[in-house]
């Protein structure tokens, strides 16, 4: 199973829906709420987003080596082989 890691915001409904999708499909995932993180973590997240050619638009979902920015169930499912 590919590892799923997400950067999210506590205020973002699409982040909540993305989390719900993974829970409903019994996909374990880790997440960090950018707005609740400490400064150091925030800086690391920002650099990670920029290194992928993205602004900090959430949810930022890493599935294995792939990155999906935004709430896109088809892409999540495709990358996880669901």
């Amino acid at each position: 199973m590919k590892k799923v890691v997400m950067y999210t915001l506590s205020t973002c409904p699409w982040c909540m829906r993305a989390k719900k999708f993974f829970r409903e499909h019994d996909i374990p995932f880790e997440y960090i709420d950018y707005d609740k993180a400490d400064r150091e973590t925030q800086q690391a997240i920002r650099e990670d987003c920029l290194s992928h050619g993205e602004q900090m638009s959430f949810p930022f979902v890493k599935i294995g080596d792939d990155v999906v920015v935004g709430y896109n169930l088809n892409k999540y499912a495709q990358l996880l082989g669901l």
């Binding site: 973002c12 950018y34 900090m56 959430f58």
Partner: peptide, 23 residues
């Protein structure tokens, strides 16, 4: 979303986008 924006405005002084990160 409007509810989130009002909370953000209370906390940070402005109704920011609830889905993008502030620096």
């Amino acid at each position: 979303l409007l509810e989130q924006e009002v909370q953000l405005e209370k906390e940070k002084g402005n109704p920011f986008c609830p889905c993008q990160g502030l620096t």
